[in-house]
Design a protein around this nucleic acid. Sequence first.
DNA 1: CGATTAATTGATACTTCTCAAATCCTGTGG
DNA 2: CCACAGGATTTGAGAAGTATCAATTAATCG
Lengths: 231, 231
Amino acid sequence: MEHFDCANCPSRIDSPFHELSVDELTKVQNIKSCTFFKKGQIIFHEGNRPGGIYCIRKGKVKLSRLGSDGKEQIIRFGKDSDIIGYRSILSGENLSATVTTLEDTSACFVPKKILFDSIEGNPKFSLRIMKEMSRELGEAGRLITNLAQKSVRERLAEVILVLRTTFGETEEGNVDISLTREELANMVGTATESVIRLLSEFKEDQLIELKGRKLKITNPDQLARIGKVFD
Amino acid sequence: MEHFDCANCPSRIDSPFHELSVDELTKVQNIKSCTFFKKGQIIFHEGNRPGGIYCIRKGKVKLSRLGSDGKEQIIRFGKDSDIIGYRSILSGENLSATVTTLEDTSACFVPKKILFDSIEGNPKFSLRIMKEMSRELGEAGRLITNLAQKSVRERLAEVILVLRTTFGETEEGNVDISLTREELANMVGTATESVIRLLSEFKEDQLIELKGRKLKITNPDQLARIGKVFD
DNA sequence: CGATTAATTGATACTTCTCAAATCCTGTGG
DNA sequence: CCACAGGATTTGAGAAGTATCAATTAATCG
């Protein structure tokens, strides 16, 4: 695998690593290792103790955890410029989620020592990490509220909109992520069959178009009303 | 209100402020203001921009947010030595939750400048904050999974156990927190009537004892089985 | 002690789950 | 490139779990 150059990494702009000095970045550059993951591969396994974090250079991953019945729950996604695994490193706990690629993904592994060194030596870097965690905490709170209070139908409508916001659209206007019906169910917290039935309804009502796993949103406003999304 | 002494604050041991030097702590000590809140008072209001954080010296609070139907969702609790409001400060977003006291509470307000100064000047303090946020993120993921996958019955059983773990027991063996049925419903994400019915069932099955809002757990193992809590 | 809020109980309706069976895709190897 | 195996998707029917509405009763707070 090619050893990518951090200084030119297009993902760095959105990342805490943007805050590092040239010297600090060089240290990262010299010690990191770049890896390529094929679609469906597992990067981190829930319960393990990682030796460092991954910066996603290009690709898409899902973070999921197993419920008490062994069912997968998708917690959130990661994509270009996102950092994966730092929660576990910072808390000193085992990994709370499994990270699986949703498409071919290239990512760089940064050992945890570098992470701690950067925190030790660069408050701006620390602050940037905290900011990121804060955003995630806020997002988690929103998700908690939605799961607790919204119906399955409402949650699915919202999830569809969230996916578009997160991953954007392809040239053809499809939401730029390919998920199985089961994965959608594992985001919403419902049975696969329920997702299928509700998607059919949404299609019937001309809110979306479906071609296999390709999904196009044709009436986002109505979808937002159904999902009670008021942003 | 008395101006409490940080150096002798019993809550400091468990708090990020434990990492501050004597000089740094003196700065906090001189600028902070101590406040007393009666039961039911609101400390922070969702949507506002706080000018700083609160250290809870002694007391209990709930963090909750409003769902799209205006229903309260309780996200988590705070008690002695917990810090409230830092998420919003660090992310620069509005407060994502309302903080309400569940009993009389004394807390100290620390302006955000001090918080940022401490992060700037003391990496150990930063790390301690990050550790705390990491734990909360892990906790949030667990909650998300439970809400998405468990039944109302299971969630209620778990909530009862979580409350005991969080707040401990009184001398009489009751869970040391007083919540209305509605508040329990707003944790579980269900209707108040459902909580009442299920609590009656649990009582019928001799898993718990109920006297008004006093709740005693008499069969935690069975409750854990029902709640599918495998810790 | 009223007055208000909280808790309880009952009846009914609805949403969602579960199980089963049939088709449709997708990725893979020949 | 094509056929095939195994997984993914779809549809149906019935059961179960919760929500909702309404009416009482109990508890709490000035």
